[in-house]
């Protein structure tokens, strides 16, 4: 009458919970592993902080290049000015590899275009019906994104940093840039309804890191510096794991990566999380400068 049911191997009919705890646990585990490794890793080859800054600028530029190219392609480059962001990101990134002095105008241009981009994006939001509404903040041009290009340019210019005070200035700037990025992530992860519990990581780890970094900028105490450094490493690892999450997130859209022409654009932006890694690297360099590393 009632067919035998193997309770133990029962495959539930219902949808899984809207919170994807399994992938979250996997990701947090990966973060623990990677972050732990980063924390334990001895600094065997001490990099010159200026080289770190250059690498950070290059990483940031790469992230911004990929992100702005994708997002503006999604927007169909309907305004020719939309080419400026990926173009400047490319130039700024290249600028970090060559003659630092010659690249300065490029970095300065990136800062200027980034700042102008903020205006363009604000206009894009305002011109839609509803104006400054949640819907437009979620789906119109992302309000804070062009700031990333400006950060790239500033990191490119920060190549000239040498002194402890430069370090403090840079630490303060990275802390603020991190907080700005956190605000953007919070907005977009709120849009995603925090459907994956790991989505809270980039709005918890980076603010804590930024606070520690800001502390170093204001009161460069040696006692808390190792803690700040550890936080930066965790944030750097989080950028890598976040990229993994976003790749997985795209695959969860209908058609997965096989339908990439939709899903790579409609799903979570794959290039975005790595900007946290870039910021962490620059923060690390700032601590080096504060600590008086040559």
């Amino acid at each position: 009458m009632v067919p035998a049911q193997e309770k133990s191997v029962r495959h539930p009919a219902r949808n899984t919970s809207s919170r994807d705890w399994r992938s979250a646990a996997l990701g947090i585990g990966a973060l623990a592993a990677l972050g732990g490794a980063a924390l334990l890793m001895r600094r065997r080859t001490r990099l010159d902080p200026r080289r770190k800054i250059r690498q950070s600028a290059a990483a940031m530029g790469g992230s911004i290049l990929a992100d702005s190219a994708m997002e503006h392609l999604r927007g169909g480059f309907h305004n020719p000015a939309m080419y400026a962001a990926p173009a400047l990101a490319t130039l700024s990134m290249l600028g970090t590899t060559g003659n630092a002095r010659a690249a300065r105008p490029v970095h300065a241009a990136a800062v200027a275009v980034g700042a102008a981009g903020l205006g363009f994006h604000a206009y894009n939001i305002l011109k839609r019906p509803g104006g400054v509404s949640w819907n437009n903040l979620f789906y119109a041009a992302p309000i804070g994104a062009p700031g990333g290009l400006a950060v790239t340019g500033i990191l490119g210019l920060a190549d000239a940093a040498r002194t402890r005070d430069h370090g403090r200035l840079l630490a303060g700037f990275i802390a603020l840039a991190t907080l700005a990025e956190v605000a953007e992530v919070a907005l977009l992860h709120f849009r995603g309804a925090w459907h994956n519990p790991a989505m809270v990581l980039p709005v918890t780890v980076p603010p804590a890191t930024a606070a520690l970094l800001l502390g170093q900028a204001l009161h460069p105490r040696t006692t808390t510096r190792p803690l700040a450094r550890s936080a930066l490493r965790l944030m750097g690892a989080m950028g890598v794991i976040g990229t993994g999450f976003h790749i997985y997130g795209v695959s969860r859209n209908m058609g997965g990566w096989g339908n990439w022409r939709q899903t790579a654009f409609a799903g979570p932006p794959v290039p975005a999380p790595s900007s946290f890694t870039a910021l962490a690297l620059a923060g690390d360099a700032a601590l080096d400068l504060i600590g008086g590393t040559p």
């Binding site: 809207s18 995603g192 309804a193 459907h195 994956n196 859209n253 409609a266």
Partner: peptide
């Protein structure tokens, strides 16, 4: 006033349901 319509289709993944395409 107007509003985006509340809809029974997900705007982000929900378990085995992908977001609306």
């Amino acid at each position: 006033p107007w509003a985006p319509t509340p809809l029974a289709t997900v705007s982000a993944p929900r378990g085995k349901s992908p977001p609306c395409v």
